[in-house]
Amino acid sequence: MDRIPILRMGQFLLVTIQIDLYDRLAVNLESDLVQMVSKTGARGVLIDISALTIVDSFMGRILGNIGNMSKIMDAETVVVGMQPAVAITLIELGLELQGVSTALNVEKGMLYLQEKIGNQIEAADDEDGVE
């Protein structure tokens, strides 16, 4: 069965969606990702959708689900590389990508994740210091 590859990079998981997903593939990705987060203890998930020419309400919901599921597994999700036409369409469609952060490109998305995770680690260190 077709699968979208999930790459591990340090504390993060990287997913590049390079084809227009049909539903089954998207649902598989959702469950694969959550399992990977659990297995690897990843702190961040970066999803590159720069090759997606359309995001409809189903795909939007999958992205939102991944974000929310990762969140309760203690991982941040960032979606990067959305095409301008897709962004325009999403807003007119009335879809807000709830539960996920977005960044312009992979580089900015990585920076965002690092900052977010970095802050959490610092905060944890501070707490240790008080004790």
Binding site: T53, I54, S57, P84, A85, I88, L93
Partner: peptide, 17 residues
């Protein structure tokens, strides 16, 4: 235009779903 294409295809995708 690309934006209109995207809008049309997205709408079509919703309806076909």
């Amino acid at each position: 235009s690309l934006v209109n294409q995207t809008k049309l295809i997205t709408a079509a995708s919703e309806l076909v779903r």
